[in-house]
C-alpha cells in the first residue's frame, strides 16, 4: 500500500530502502555512528563518512543532489565549529572535531533519509512503556504535517494578493500567519478528534506499519561492516 507522504519527509519515502525494517537501518546507521565516536577521527571518521555516503547513495539510492545538499548545509555549521576550535586549540584539533561531526551527521542522515518517522514510531509504540509517548509523538507529527501544509498554502495565497514583500515585512507576515495557523490547527485537530471518537477510536492512534520483516542477512552485513570499520580504524590508527 502506498502512503501519501508530507513535504516534511519526502525523501524517506522516495528511496529503495523505505520498506526495510527500521531496526536493520537503525543498527547499520547507529552502529556506524558509535564506531565514529569511539575511535579517533583520522582515519575512522573518513571511512565512516565514505561508508555512510556510498551506502546511502548506491544502496538506498538517495539522490546524490539531496545527499550533497544536506551534508553541505551541515558543513556550513561545522565550518563555524572548526573556526572556533582552531582559534582556541589549534587547527588540527578543530579539523579533527569537525570531521568527526561530519561523519556522525552522515550516519544520522543515512537513518533519517531512509526511514519514515511513522515507521520509527510504530517500532517504538510496540514497547508498552513507550506507547503513550509514541502516541503523543504521532499526534505531534500529524500536527506538524498539517501545519506545514496549511502554512504553505496560506503564504502562497497572501503573496498572490499582496506580492512579495521585503525581508522584514516577510518575517512579520510569517509570524502573523503562524499565529493564525495555530488557531486553525487547533480547530482542525479538534474536528479530527471528534471524528475518531465518532468511529469509536478513543484510545491510541493507529500507526503506519508497512515495513518488511527483519532480514538476518542485512543484520549480518551491517555487523560485518561495522566490525571491518572498527578493525580498519584500529589498524590504520
Amino acid at each position: 500500500m502506498m502512503h501519501r507522504h508530507v513535504p516534511l519527509d519526502h525523501l524517506p519515502y522516495a528511496n529503495r530502502w523505505r520498506r526495510r525494517h527500521p531496526a536493520e537501518k537503525g543498527l547499520l546507521a547507529l552502529g556506524l555512528l558509535l564506531v565514529t565516536l569511539v575511535l579517533p577521527p583520522v582515519p575512522t571518521s573518513v571511512l565512516a563518512l565514505l561508508a555512510a555516503s556510498l551506502i546511502g547513495m548506491l544502496g538506498a539510492r538517495i539522490p546524490v543532489r539531496a545527499w550533497s545538499r544536506l551534508l553541505g548545509a551541515q558543513s556550513v555549521f561545522l565550518g563555524g565549529a572548526w573556526a572556533a576550535l582552531a582559534w582556541q586549540s589549534g587547527w588540527q584539533n578543530g579539523a579533527a572535531m569537525a570531521l568527526r561531526s561530519l561523519a556522525a551527521t552522515a550516519c544520522l542522515l543515512l537513518l533519517a533519509l531512509t526511514t519514515p518517522v511513522p515507521a520509527l514510531l510504530s517500532c517504538a509504540g510496540r514497547w508498552a512503556p513507550l506507547r503513550p509517548l509514541a502516541d503523543l509523538a504521532a499526534l505531534i507529527y500529524r500536527f506538524l504535517a498539517t501545519g506545514i501544509g496549511t502554512m504553505q498554502r496560506s503564504r502562497a495565497g497572501v503573496r498572490q494578493r499582496l506580492g512579495h514583500p521585503r525581508a522584514w515585512k516577510d518575517r512579520a507576515l510569517h509570524g502573523d500567519l503562524a499565529a493564525r495557523v495555530l488557531h486553525r490547527l487547533l480547530d482542525r485537530s479538534t474536528g479530527m478528534e471528534r471524528g475518531y471518537q465518532c468511529r469509536g477510536v478513543d484510545g491510541l492512534l493507529p500507526y503506519y506499519n508497512a515495513h518488511q520483516p527483519l532480514e538476518g542477512r542485512y543484520v549480518a552485513a551491517a555487523l560485518l561492516l561495522q566490525a571491518g570499520l572498527l578493525a580498519g580504524g584500529i589498524f590504520l590508527w
Binding site: F77, L136, L139, I140, F143, G147
Partner: peptide, 23 residues
Amino acid sequence: LLVAASAGFLFAMTAMKFPSVAG
C-alpha cells in the same frame, strides 16, 4: 491536542536556524 500544538510551535520556532559557533 494543546500539548501537540505547543510542540508544533516549538518545532516551527527552533527550525528557523542559522549557523553559529562551535557546531
